[in-house]
């Protein structure tokens, strides 16, 4: 079980590392690249806390092996804002609408919602709830999160108007 060399682009930066084949992308990001914004809740695909963009699509990073991501382009929560220290519209909306309490689930929600709104900029309440079903939050009761998604659509529209 020799380690394998991999090279991935993370938040626009080319990063290299060596890893065992069994290491998930989530653990590689956190332990090798020190990008601890990607959270690991269940480690088997149920909670969504580990969601990242892989070649532009939202995926569970606990269900992708790091070796499978060799050559891929990854965006994590650290790269979701416009620049370091500035919030993107979805982050801003979560803050304004109390879309978080403890914040453990938040990186996964923000990445998922960002990717969903890029494809569907004006979702209905039902579509929002269906889309959010892939992420679990133990704290908020989801009302603030649904409100945040609505608010994010406004912020995105204002920014592009």
């Amino acid at each position: 079980m020799t380690d394998q060399a991999i090279a991935i682009t993370v938040n626009g930066e080319r990063r290299k590392g060596r890893t065992e084949a069994r290491t998930t992308l989530a653990d590689f990001l956190r332990d090798e690249l020190a990008l601890t914004g990607t959270h690991v809740g269940c480690e088997h695909g149920v909670c969504g806390a580990c969601t990242v963009l892989l070649d532009g699509e939202a995926v569970r990073s606990c269900l992708v092996l790091a070796v499978q991501a060799d050559g891929a382009d990854i965006t994590t929560i650290e790269g979701i804002g416009p620049e370091p220290g500035r919030l993107g519209p979805v982050q801003q909306a979560f803050m304004e609408c109390h879309g978080l309490q403890c914040g453990f689930c938040t990186p996964g929600f923000v990445v998922s919602v960002t990717s969903f709104l890029a494809e569907q900029p004006a979702p209905t309440d039902d579509e929002i709830r269906e889309m959010l079903s892939g992420n679990i939050c133990r704290c908020t009761g989801y009302q603030g999160i649904v409100a945040a998604v609505h608010r994010a659509t406004e912020l995105i529209e204002e920014a592009t108007a």
């Binding site: 084949a21 069994r22 695909g45 269900l63 092996l65 070796v67 499978q68």
Partner: peptide
């Protein structure tokens, strides 16, 4: 074989199954 990993990787992680070799189809 390993395809999307959305069933196989959870089963590996939960140690419900295990294989000395995985062949990635991706």
């Amino acid at each position: 074989p390993l395809a999307g990993g959305q069933s196989l990787v959870p089963m590996l992680a939960l140690r419900l199954t295990g294989f000395p070799h995985l062949v990635d189809l991706n």
